[in-house]
Nucleic acid binder design. Structure first.
Lengths: 193, 193
DNA sequence: TGTACATCAGTGAACGCGCGTTCACTGATGTAC
DNA sequence: TGTACATCAGTGAACGCGCGTTCACTGATGTAC
């Protein structure tokens, strides 16, 4: 039955949020449309009234995940604190609301162009955010702008790589935990954050 | 028709190698059994004479990929040279014979335990290899053993993270290339390799 | 403000395709004599 | 060494299931009068 425009808009958003979580937890191929719709409180038939295809939803979910993550990084949270949270077992064990880069990683290359584009934009924004925090963090003036850019990239790569490796080695609890803590301390001593 | 035991063993190996390449290129879900068998020069029906399931093959292929990669790193190739090769566009654009960690990354968590175990063992071995090269590379004595371990982990994470991000941002050629080069130079200046 | 009707968000059955897996069959291998 | 036969690697058709997508239908919404 028909539903008010407001309700329909809420449903639309609910589907995106359910997808953003499920896709991060299980990958784009690991969830089906019916399950996402159920999670959003609807039946699968309503899906194509909201999105033209599963890929279309994947793009929207990818964008939402990046937005949500970037907005969730409050201005008063320092890069150091952010890194502590990022490289935590808490984050490792809860990919659903976590970093989309770590969650989608190798998946993204097999997605349609539109999804890849959203991802790429998200990576750019993340990288800029880190570069600006690196600048604000009282780093020595001697460090030039270009070094800060490459440091930001290397830092981002180290973060994503650590999380990906920590998640994929969960069969060895000590190794997985060490990847996070070793990486955290090396970043601290090498990058000063 | 029946085939000599030698030939059958060759076939078995051919299937593993075809799978190791295809899985790295397209992910575990991105290739089907029939295509792998065709690549190995056989028909799909012969598959279950060699492996009990697609997952069984995935585990064998994962192990093979790590072995192949580790063996491919000759003793006379320094860590510095290895990093140059690893963080290259050549490697980025040819995942089939490339690093299994970067190729499987977020996929591995959705695979059966047996596959995850092979992956975890591979990561451990890779990490040890890097740690030993870090030690041999004329690093200052002042650096303690424990720091070397965490440096090796951070380095591995940075390598894998860079490759994963570079591959997933190919829609933006400059960004993708910058991720590799920025990361490479930051690693050089921060880790001295 | 109240009534009549067109709109359209949501439902659930059905379709079609891809893919992992099974199976009866084939014919070369390799062993027993 | 040669022959007869059991074995078994490989073939290709078929099965069954999951999933993305479609569609006829329902009934609440919201608009025209």
């Amino acid at each position: 039955m028909k539903v008010s425009k407001e309700k329909a808009a809420e449903h639309h958003q609910a589907v995106i949020e359910a997808a953003a979580m499920s896709f991060r937890e299980s990958g784009f191929e690991g969830v089906n449309v019916a399950d996402i719709m159920k999670k959003a409180g609807l039946t699968h038939g309503a899906f194509y009234g909201h999105f033209s295809s599963k890929s279309d939803l994947a793009a929207a979910a990818c964008r939402y995940a990046f937005d949500d993550r970037l907005n969730g990084w409050a201005d008063d949270v320092s890069l150091t604190d952010y890194l502590d949270r990022y490289l935590s077992t808490f984050h490792r064990d809860r990919p659903g609301r976590g970093c989309p880069m770590a969650a989608f990683a190798s998946d993204i290359g097999r997605q349609p162009k539109a999804v890849q584009k959203e991802f790429e934009v998200g990576v750019s924004r993340y990288r800029e955010r880190i570069a600006s925090r690196l600048a604000a963090g009282g780093a020595p003036k001697a460090i030039r702008q270009s070094d800060r850019q490459s440091d930001a990239t290397a830092l981002l790569a180290a973060m994503v790589g650590s999380m990906v490796l920590a998640r994929s080695t969960r069969s060895n609890r000590t190794l997985s935990a060490r990847i996070l803590s070793d990486s955290r301390s090396a970043i601290a001593s090498r990058f000063g954050v």
